[in-house]
Amino acid sequence: MSRDEKAKAKAEQAKGKAKEALGRLVGNERRTAEGRIDQAKGDARQAKEKAKDAMKD
């Protein structure tokens, strides 16, 4: 996995966790859902990069 893509995936996951926590804290269900979506995007990006690495080997 390239470092740049790995960093983007981790950043997206962290952003999602922060949004979700903030949403729960203030009782905003929409923000909580957006946080979960951002985490899922980060997970998908990470899975894509791992698959690319597996194909190289």
Rank of each mutant, 00 (worst) to 15 (best):
K50N: 14
K8C: 05
K50Q: 15
D38M: 05
E29Y: 03
N28Y: 11
S2V: 02
G16W: 05
K10G: 02
E5D: 08
K17V: 02
A51R: 12
E49I: 10
G35C: 05
A14W: 03
K10M: 09
A51I: 13
A51L: 13
K8W: 08
D43C: 00
K19A: 06
E49L: 13
G16D: 06
D53L: 13
K8T: 09
M1I: 06
E34P: 00
A47T: 15
R24F: 04
K8L: 11
A14T: 08
T32I: 02
K52G: 06
G23D: 06
D43W: 06
K8A: 10
K50Y: 12
K19Y: 06
A40L: 10
E49W: 06
K17T: 02
E20P: 00
R45Y: 14
K10Q: 13
A11W: 08
D53P: 04
K15E: 14
A33N: 12
A21E: 07
K10T: 07
K56F: 09
D43L: 06
K8Q: 12
A11S: 09
A47Y: 13
A47S: 14
E29D: 14
D57Q: 14
D53R: 12
A40E: 12
A7N: 08
A11Q: 09
D43S: 05
R36Y: 10
K15F: 06
K15V: 07
D4P: 00
D38W: 08
L25C: 00
K50R: 14
A54W: 07
E49T: 14
K56T: 09
A14K: 04
A18G: 02
G23E: 04
R31M: 15
D53S: 11
K48D: 15
D57N: 13
A40D: 09
A9V: 03
L22C: 00
K41E: 14
Q46L: 14
E5N: 04
R45A: 15
K52E: 11
